[in-house]
């Protein structure tokens, strides 16, 4: 049994010292509750909508303030999130696993949404590495940040890399109040679908910690959750309410689920790698798109219904006609 404390907090924008103090308080409170792991939301140490403040609140991994937070994790684990400045002065949205006084693992957010209400790529650099990490909990952890989970490969890779518990820390802005939304909020409905699906398909626990509070126009909706490896919710925190929510998780459910539903065992990674390799080359125009119709654009197999130009595609002339996935047998 592992006890997880979800710190569904409302960080103060740009107020690093205040937020660090709050993290210390909540780690201590988690310890009083017997928590093995305290999870904080994305950019819980800095607030989300930083814009040009990002550089001003950035910390290097050897920052003494991070070391002090790590020191507070004697006998437990914590996942905290902040702006990391690298040696070459790139700024990352980072989530770190702190254990027994040390920074055990750092994940740099891979996918920086820069569309709609998001403008992350303007201010941050994307990470390049995704790794599951062992932890003192006796389980592999797969740590990702918010938008990372809107890309299918991320939870899959984390599970295949050895994670039994996928942890997503988020600052998800709530939007879409349409009365037809199941959870009363479009964003909440979408996330709930994603997390249940990932838990089921990776037969892993999914831990979601989302912040609350307001940055400028944006309201963050909380609704942190723990989903079991069968896709059933173990715990759902209330929407919009600040709090430290303690959840007990029976890790042996992963074993039971993976034996009963051996999806991970049955994954065919060589096949996936081979096909992905093909798609990569085809999309780059370095190989003939074996499934595309004549005249189709790279990455899109269907040709325009009424060809506007010459029969042969100009320039490249390397597309196959009709779908010919394999070499034709000789007559």
């Amino acid at each position: 049994m592992v006890r997880i404390a979800l710190a569904q907090v409302a960080p103060r924008l740009g107020a690093l010292d205040d937020n660090i103090a709050r993290h210390h308080e909540l780690i201590a409170e988690g310890r009083r509750h017997g928590a093995d792991l305290v999870v904080f939301p994305e950019l819980g140490l800095t607030g989300y909508l930083l814009q040009d403040l990002a550089a001003e609140v950035a910390m290097r991994l050897d920052d003494p303030r991070l070391a002090e937070l790590a020191d507070a994790t004697d006998g437990l684990s914590a996942i905290v999130s902040f702006v990391e400045e690298s040696d070459d002065h790139r700024l990352f949205i980072a989530a770190a696993l702190l254990e027994e006084g040390a920074i055990r693992h750092v994940h740099r957010k891979l996918f920086l949404p820069t569309y709609g209400l998001f403008d992350e790529r303007r201010f941050f650099a994307p990470g390049d590495v995704l790794r599951a990490t062992p932890s003192r909990l006796g389980a592999g952890l797969g740590i990702a940040v918010c938008e990372d989970f809107w890309h299918l490969g991320v939870p899959q890779l984390l599970a295949l890399d050895g994670a039994q518990v996928l942890v997503n820390v988020s600052s998800s802005p709530g939007r879409d109040l349409a009365a037809t939304n199941e959870a009363g909020l479009g964003t909440a409905s979408s996330w709930r679908n994603l997390m249940r699906t990932y838990a089921q398909l990776t037969t892993s626990f999914v831990v979601f910690c989302n912040r609350v509070g307001v940055d400028e126009s944006i309201t963050f909706w909380g609704g942190s959750e723990v989903i079991g490896p069968s896709g059933q919710a173990v715990f759902s925190a209330p929407l919009f309410e600040e709090g430290l929510f303690v959840v007990d998780v029976a890790l042996d459910e992963v074993r039971r689920e993976r034996i009963g539903l051996p999806l991970l065992r049955d994954e065919r990674l060589e096949w996936q790698l081979r096909e992905l390799g093909r798609v990569v080359l085809e999309r780059a125009g370095m190989a003939i798109d074996s499934t595309a119709e004549w005249g189709a654009q790279p990455g899109f197999d269907v040709a325009p219904s009424e060809p506007a130009g010459p029969e042969e595609p100009a320039g490249r002339g390397e597309r196959a006609s009709a779908p010919i996935p394999f070499r034709k047998p000789r007559p």
Binding site: L177, A178, A179, T180, G184, L185, V214
Partner: peptide
């Protein structure tokens, strides 16, 4: 298509006002 969840709206707006 314009009907909203008024409970959620009051909740979000209340937090927004206090936050501002």
């Amino acid at each position: 298509e314009l009907a909203i969840d008024t409970d959620v709206a009051r909740r979000v707006i209340g937090g927004f006002i206090r936050g501002q």
